[in-house]
Simulated assay, not measured.
Amino acid sequence: MTSRARGFTLIELLLAISILAIIAVLGWRGLDSIVRSRETLTAGMDQSRGLQLAFAQMQSDCENMADGPLLRNRAFLQAEDNRITLVRMVLGENQPTRLQVVSYRVVDGVLTRRESASTRELTQLDGLWQAALSDTDPAAAVALQAGVQNMVMRFWVPTANSGVSVVSNAGGWRPAAGALTAGAPGVTVLPTGLEVSMTQQGLEIPMVKSFLLGAL
């Protein structure tokens, strides 16, 4: 008696195909989730890297900030929400010290930096300072980072000795407001640090960096 080989029935084939289809869909969803997570992580890392580079440039500018005696009691730093304007020294090898106005702005979600022409003339510096404050400086602004929601600053004010007039009544972090001018009447202690907080769009926790003012 001959035996006949038994094959798969139609129901068994349909069941196997259905199982394979379910496995394929689950695998595709898992792979798609991994790809999306990787893209989001890469974008976040790119933004963080961009902000770190912007902070590095700010640190260089703050370290080279011009002091009061050099400016003869002129303003050297003005910070407010989404705006920083400062005067920095330009130090070249075998070159005299020159002064330059640098401004940081957050406009339409983009952090930009603009630097003026360098000069040794204080009267020319006054014009460069006013042009920076009014955003009429003809120098081109360089985009440092996109996707910035806001930029907030604070000053570190050291504790003064008894009987000494200071910018603030006590030491500690204070919201940045107005311009800092060395030698201004009634002010003998100025902030020694600047804290910058930048929040990326879509995030709630800001990236914070503190700088010494005039460390060099």
Results as ranks from 00 to 15, higher is better:
T2V: 09
R6W: 10
R6S: 05
L10C: 07
L13A: 12
I17Q: 06
I19M: 15
I23P: 12
V25Y: 13
G27N: 07
G27H: 10
R29P: 06
V35N: 05
R38I: 00
L41Y: 11
M45Y: 06
D46Y: 13
S48Y: 09
S48P: 00
G50T: 01
A54F: 12
Q59T: 15
E63R: 07
N64L: 14
M65G: 00
M65Y: 04
G68Y: 15
P69K: 00
L71F: 01
F76M: 05
E80K: 10
D81S: 14
T85N: 02
V90L: 02
L91C: 04
Q95G: 04
T97Y: 00
R98K: 06
R98T: 11
S103F: 06
Y104C: 02
Y104H: 06
R105L: 09
R114Q: 12
S116I: 04
S118W: 03
R120C: 13
T123L: 04
L125Q: 03
L125S: 02
L128M: 12
L128G: 10
W129D: 02
S134P: 12
D137R: 07
A139M: 13
A140N: 12
A141V: 03
V142D: 08
A143G: 12
A146T: 06
N150K: 12
N150H: 09
M153N: 12
W156V: 07
P158T: 04
S168I: 01
N169P: 09
A170Q: 14
G171F: 09
W173M: 08
W173Q: 09
R174T: 10
A176L: 06
T181A: 11
T181M: 15
G183H: 10
G186K: 08
L190Q: 04
G193A: 11
E195H: 01
V196I: 15
S197P: 05
M198Q: 00
M198W: 03
Q200P: 08
Q201I: 14
I205A: 10
V208K: 01
K209C: 15
A215F: 12
